[in-house]
């Protein structure tokens, strides 16, 4: 189980990284945390000619609160989301979702950008980013473009990123008064990919009505799945049990695949159960936060 040969490129700046990428195009794989890519290399399921290690690009490592949003560089490690007080305090949903990624050692290497670009449909962060309405910052030869997380995931492990582009970072909203959140998932063992996962980021107004709602599911479709109809249904309604139950009735349209760990039916059922539990928890937190 050894990687096929490759050339190792290690740019020292974003400009150099983009330039290198532009020169080699389709023959290059970007190496961030490597926690998904390296297994693929070792199984020889990925065999790029060039491996572009972006770990030494300084512009991709940042974590700051600015203009009411939390800005994260693509190289932010999963463990930082729970450990850095500014991240944990301002966007607790990310900390909660990241805590379910793999295990300690995986979280110490795995990066936010890597998880989003790998786009495993059962992964935690893509769903969380959609629920948050994250804005992704993508750099390429043509400059920088901003993409909403919901539009980034285009199909099974397919994202809106050209071969000459790099996901440089992203920004997410921060919690304020009335903000509630929850990430819940079911997996065979702790740290395994989600059979189903639900990310919720919402806010209540002072009357206890849903002001804003973001909900996304992991593990139930070919990509992280935004529960748009449920979100629309909830906004403006009172945050109470009957409304949550009614929202569950709106939860439809995703298309889970059965596999050796869980049947389609079980994934559907868990999606619904977790949807209710996550909404409840988010509402409770929001109410405590008012």
């Amino acid at each position: 189980m050894k990687s096929a040969p490759f050339e190792y490129l290690v740019p020292a700046s974003l400009a150099e990284a983009l330039e290198t990428l532009a020169g080699h195009q389709d023959e290059t794989k970007v190496l961030a945390g490597g926690q998904s890519l390296v297994p693929l290399l070792k199984l020889r399921l990925a065999r790029p000619r060039y491996l572009l290690d972006i770990n030494r690009v300084p512009e991709l490592s940042y974590l700051e609160l600015k203009d009411g949003r939390l800005h994260l560089g693509a190289l932010t490690r999963h463990s930082a989301l729970g450990r850095e007080p500014s991240a944990r305090g301002s966007c607790p949903l990310l900390a909660e979702a990241a805590a379910r990624i793999g295990h300690t050692a995986i979280r110490n290497r795995g990066t936010v950008g890597g998880s989003l670009c790998h786009a495993d449909p059962a992964a935690e962060l893509p769903a969380a980013m959609i629920a948050l309405g994250a804005e992704l910052k993508i750099d390429g030869p043509g400059g920088t473009r901003l993409v909403p997380a919901a539009g980034f995931f285009q199909g099974f492990m397919t994202v809106d990123l050209q071969p000459d582009e790099i996901l440089a970072g992203l920004s997410v909203p921060v919690a304020g008064p009335g903000t509630g959140w929850s990430y819940l998932e079911v997996s065979r063992r702790h740290g395994d990919f989600a059979i189903a996962g639900v990310a919720v980021w919402l806010s209540l107004d002072d009357k206890g009505l849903f002001r804003q709602v973001g909900i996304a599911l992991a593990g139930v479709d070919d990509r992280p799945w935004k529960a748009r109809a449920c979100e629309d249904f909830l906004v403006g309604k009172e945050a109470k049990e009957e409304v949550i139950a009614a929202a569950r009735e709106q939860l439809a349209g995703f298309d889970p695949t059965g596999d050796i760990h869980a049947s389609r039916e079980y994934r559907e059922l868990m999606a619904g159960e977790l949807f209710v539990q996550a909404l409840r928890q988010a509402v409770e937190r929001a109410a405590n936060n008012l």
């Binding site: 079911v186 065979r188 760990h261 869980a262 049947s263 039916e265 079980y266 059922l269």
Partner: peptide, 12 residues
């Protein structure tokens, strides 16, 4: 599996 348990109470 968890779903085998649910199957025995009719949930799956």
């Amino acid at each position: 599996k968890p779903e085998d348990i649910l199957r025995r109470v009719g949930a799956v």
